[in-house]
Design a protein around this nucleic acid. Structure first.
Length: 943
RNA sequence: GCCGCGGUGGCGGAAUUGGUAGACGCGUGCGACUCAAAAUCGCAUUCUUUCGGGGGUGAGGGUUCGAUUCCCUCCCGCGGCACCA
């Protein structure tokens, strides 16, 4: 029976009791239990808990409570990431110190978090602004400094003019705006504190492999790091200088018909005297500077550049003299800032070459069979047979350019035939299998050329038809070659090698790949041509061989840049570095940590670091280190603070170390990390790097901090849009907690859809009312308690528990709640025993901690329900004694029968016959019966 | 453009080693209670229909006794990256 309850009274009563008794405190590691470290991203104390926080913390709480009830020792800590610009900006607005503002917010938010009634491990909390937290942030930084992981670098940095500070590459969005404020960032040349994340690039990529993370997050990190495997090759310039280029395609070196330097490349200005069109060059450099600062929305993306007249380079592979350009499609910041251009095999180089009339030399041919045009059908078949014979005879020498790596080793030995299907210009390639029943069977050996499967008459033995599935190769690009090659149209007239030519020659035809006539570039791998001694080798082998020949070296290049961590703002961790009178940097020794943030400054942003104005900091530095010593005045990026917070939770009272190795061994790694998608290539990357850097210094026990990651979606406003004040669609959780209760809000958020999908769910006022109604029904459920209950109820109870035990660990809270609703709906029409009632309450406890606790007490219990175990289902009681299955006649469902799950086909048929409607349809001749016990029966009937 | 994910009623979403599509909730309609309304309770709710049926999981094709689920082609939406050599 539906029954209203006073959510406010119930919730405050239990929140108080739980606090008093500290039932969620974790304390010391209890090794008699398995550990689970469940982490949620620590919030920024903005001063108000929004619905996203509820979604982020209250829903995972279901999982946490479930784990606790199944006997795990669960660490579910909560803390505050409290340094950073919002506090500073808010403080400026209110004319107070950010510390004050932050501390006030933390207190307020702790209360709000308390209103969730979540099982947070408050005894393990921390805040990044605490001195005994940032002391360790600073200590780690000094340790990194000693190992050159932290260094003072120079170069261009991203400057946000609104935030008045440098920001890291990861904090610049793809449209060149600041991740925090949306302002367009500027490039600025200034000294900067950097962390050498690039040294960890390979490990950051490779170690992703074993992580249980959603693939798209891994992929995003891989792309962000952007490892390219290739070679560095040095070209000589006519001026005597050497230029090293990076290329992923050293196999195409013979096709390098020009080279390009980035406009900013130092060799450009160094060779001013040799460049005869210097004015033009300077103009272009100026233009490209302006362009990069201007709009990048220039979607024409036409390549531009200028030839360096008077300068040439020598292709080290063939000794040919090639022109040198500057062009802004070559980026100074990537690779070596210079490229060898291979227009035949690179889209960009091709576009540029076409515009500036540079020769195009094809040196790689793809391993596909060419096209056939205007060829009589029988001739095609003959051709294909020739192709196939050729492949059999020359499987790997590259004379015929078939995919070499096909479905295992030695496939060509089994190769038997190919042919067209008589309708399309396609060739099928298969391999012979066992001879059976007079037919030859073939299996697919190439998946590369897949189009579709079809039945095919093979050509080896013309007298025998055999049906088999084959994959197809499209014959493309075989054309009649004009007797005279027209320049510009058929830029390349590459033909098969002589010995092949004779076999493949068609009267009046030669085979040719004329990609350029089709305005296409071949960027794939293949076999080499026009490459001297390397002809006929494949790309993979040629990469190494050619690099070796020209004295280059195989190397990797990364898109990832070092992490710029210095911030020219006030509210952050002071960088614990001091400078001696000569200007050399020294780490602040451990005994002087925390190197406290001074308060005697005007921290309003001017672009100058506020700490530079602190007399106290200056005085402190001189007192400790001596006359003439000066402090570093920048503070650390807040992403530094959050790179290791999960380690402090583990041992938050430790004065000697940020966390002892012993306690780390107890709790790390984090078993599950819930968070938002925005951290994919920021926090999630930074903290992985941080962990690895600490591992190398032997301060941590794990190589990777997070075993498993689940991203959650967004809660949208009732109108389906992202919540924003300007749209007026913001849902304030406090309102709903007051009116319908914390349990209701939490369960509603869990009920909207599966957690951990990237789906975003709109807030639905009606939907939350439905959850409230459900809980009111639960509140009235005790009225149905009786001495006995129908078997149906017992069965459903056990089914529900089974469902919960399956769904909760998969974060399918929506279907778990649905199962409980089904149970409650059934009980309302029946009775249930006190025992079953209590079992149900325990199952409900992770979802509705307050209400279940209240009802538990009302049932006469004195201990908290949250110290109880999760109910265990009896599979036998849950098993169905009979099932209703559909009966299909000729594939259409015409009715259903209720039989035992393991009933025989005869019994099932008998049941169907006793159904009048079905019997009618079963009157004809039964040709076939498909009966899957417990699932379906399909009867094929012929009239 | 490239990569990743997705497309199921009026709405959020169930169901995939292929087996009665639409669980559960919302909304809607009708009824009960009420002087009345709200709340609550009960029944109904994929579309269509000549009440026999027929169609239906973005579109089209394929495999199968049977396809939301597997395969092929295409369309649309969302997210990420976009001159990275």
């Amino acid at each position: 029976m539906h029954k209203r309850f006073d959510n406010q009274a119930i919730e405050s009563k239990w929140q108080e009791k739980w606090n008093e008794n500290g039932i969620y405190d974790v304390g010391e590691r209890d090794t008699s239990k398995e550990k689970e470290y469940v982490l949620v991203e620590l919030p920024y104390p903005s001063g108000n808990l929004h619905i996203g926080h509820w979604h982020a913390f209250a829903v995972p709480d279901i999982y946490v409570r479930y784990l606790r009830m199944t006997g795990k020792q669960v660490l579910y800590p909560m803390g505050f990431d409290a340094f950073g610009l919002p506090a500073e900006n808010a403080a400026i607005k209110r004319d107070i110190n950010p510390k004050e503002w932050t501390e006030g917010n933390i207190d307020y938010m702790k209360d709000q978090l308390g209103s969730m009634g979540a099982a947070f491990s408050w005894d393990k909390t921390t805040a990044t602004t605490d001195q005994d937290y940032y002391k360790w942030t600073q200590w780690m930084f000094t340790e990194f400094f000693k190992k050159d992981i932290a260094y003072r670098g120079t170069g261009k940095v991203n400057w946000c003019p609104k935030c008045n500070t440098v920001i890291a590459n990861e904090q610049v969005l793809s449209d060149d705006t600041c991740e925090r404020c949306g302002t367009e960032v500027e490039k600025k040349e200034m000294p900067q504190w950097m962390l050498k994340i690039t040294d960890y690039a390979d490990r950051l990529v490779d170690d992703l492999e074993d992580l249980n993370w959603p693939e798209h997050i891994k992929e995003a990190q891989r792309r962000w790091i952007g490892r390219s495997e290739g070679a560095e090759i040095t070209f000589n310039l006519s001026t005597g200088d050497d230029v090293t280029v990076f290329t992923t395609r050293p196999d195409t070196l013979f096709g390098a018909t020009y080279m390009v330097l980035a406009p900013e490349h130092p060799l450009v200005t160094q060779n001013e005297s040799s460049i005869t069109n210097w004015d033009e060059v300077v103009r272009y450099i100026e233009l490209s500077k302006k362009k990069s600062e201007q709009d990048r929305l220039d979607d024409t993306k036409e390549k531009t550049g200028v030839k360096l007249e008077g300068v040439t380079a020598t292709n080290p592979a063939n000794g040919e003299e090639i022109p040198v350009f500057i062009a802004d499609y070559v980026l100074a910041g990537y690779g070596t800032g210079a490229i060898m251009a291979v227009p035949a095999h690179d889209e960009r180089d091709f576009a540029f070459a076409a515009k500036y009339n540079v020769p195009i030399q094809q040196v790689v041919v793809p391993n596909v069979v060419p096209n056939v045009e205007d060829m009589p059908q029988e001739d095609k078949e003959t051709l294909v047979r020739d192709v196939v014979d050729l492949i059999i005879e020359h499987p790997t020498d590259g004379t015929f350019l078939m995919q070499k790596e096909i479905d295992g080793e030695n496939v060509y030995e089994h190769f038997v035939g190919g042919g067209t299907d008589g309708e399309t210009d396609e060739v099928a390639i298969g391999r012979e299998l066992e001879e059976e029943t007079g037919f030859k069977n073939y299996e697919v050996i190439s998946k590369v050329f897949t189009t579709q499967t079809y039945a095919y008459r093979h050509t080896k033995d013309k007298n025998q038809d055999c049906l088999s599935n084959f994959y197809h190769i499209k014959l493309t690009d075989l054309e009649q070659v004009p007797s005279e090659v027209e320049e510009g149209k058929h830029t390349i007239d590459w033909c098969m090698k002589d010995e092949v030519d004779t076999r493949m020659t068609w009267p009046g035809h030669r085979m040719a790949w004329n990609y350029f006539a089709h305005n296409e570039v071949y960027t794939g791998d293949g076999f080499l041509i026009e490459s001297g001694e390397f002809d006929k080798t494949n790309s993979e082998e040629a990469k190494v061989a050619i690099t070796e020949k020209v004295g280059g070296k195989m190397t990797n290049t990364y898109r990832l840049r070092d992490w710029s961590v210095g911030r020219q703002r006030y509210w952050g961790v002071p960088i614990p570095i001091v400078y001696d009178p000569e200007g050399n940097a020294h780490p602040v020794p451990k005994e002087h940590l925390p190197w406290c943030l001074p308060s005697d400054v005007d921290f309003r942003p001017t672009g100058e670091p506020p700490l530079a104005k602190s007399a106290e900091l200056k005085k402190r530095t001189e007192e400790i280190f001596g006359e003439g010593w000066t402090p570093e005045v920048e503070t650390l990026d807040t992403f530094v603070d959050s790179s290791w917070y999960f380690l402090r939770y583990i041992d938050n009272q430790n004065d000697d170390m940020f966390a002892s190795l012993e306690k780390q061994k107890n709790w790390m790694p984090i078993d599950l990390y819930f968070g938002g998608a925005e951290h994919t290539t920021m926090h999630l990357l930074y903290s992985r790097f941080w962990q690895k850097a600490l591992l190398d210094l032997r301060y941590v026990t794990e190589n990777e901090p997070y075993k498993r990651r689940i991203n959650r979606g967004l809660i949208l406003g009732p109108d389906g849009n992202k919540m924003s004040k300007s749209k007026g669609n913001v849902i304030d959780p406090d309102d709903h907690v007051k009116t319908v209760g914390a349990d209701t809000v939490k369960m509603y958020l869990a009920f909207m859809g599966p957690y951990g999908e990237t789906a975003n769910y709109p807030w639905d006022m009606g939907g939350i009312a439905g959850i409230r109604r459900f809980l009111e029904r639960v509140y009235g459920l005790s009225e149905h308690v009786a001495d006995t209950e129908p078997e149906e109820v017992t069965k459903q109870l056990h089914k529900t528990i089974l469902k919960l035990a399956k769904d909760i660990p998969e974060f399918k809270f929506n279907t778990a709640i649905s199962a409980m609703m089904v149970f409650v709906n059934l009980v309302e029409k029946n009775t249930l025993t006190q025992e079953s009632y209590e079992v149900f309450l325990r199952a409900l406890a992770p979802f509705a901690p307050h209400l279940s606790e209240e009802l538990w007490e009302a049932a006469g219990k004195t201990e908290s329900i949250h110290l109880e175990g999760f109910p265990e289902a009896d599979a036998e009681l849950a098993a169905d004694t009979e099932v209703t299955i559909g009966v299909q006649i000729n594939g259409k469902v015409r009715g259903d029968i209720t039989i035992a799950p393991d009933a025989s086909e005869e019994e099932a048929m008998a049941a169907a016959q006793s159904n009048e409607k079905l019997a009618e349809r079963l009157a004809g001749t039964v040709k076939k019966v498909i009966y899957i016990p417990g699932k379906i029966m399909n009867v094929i009937v012929v009239d």
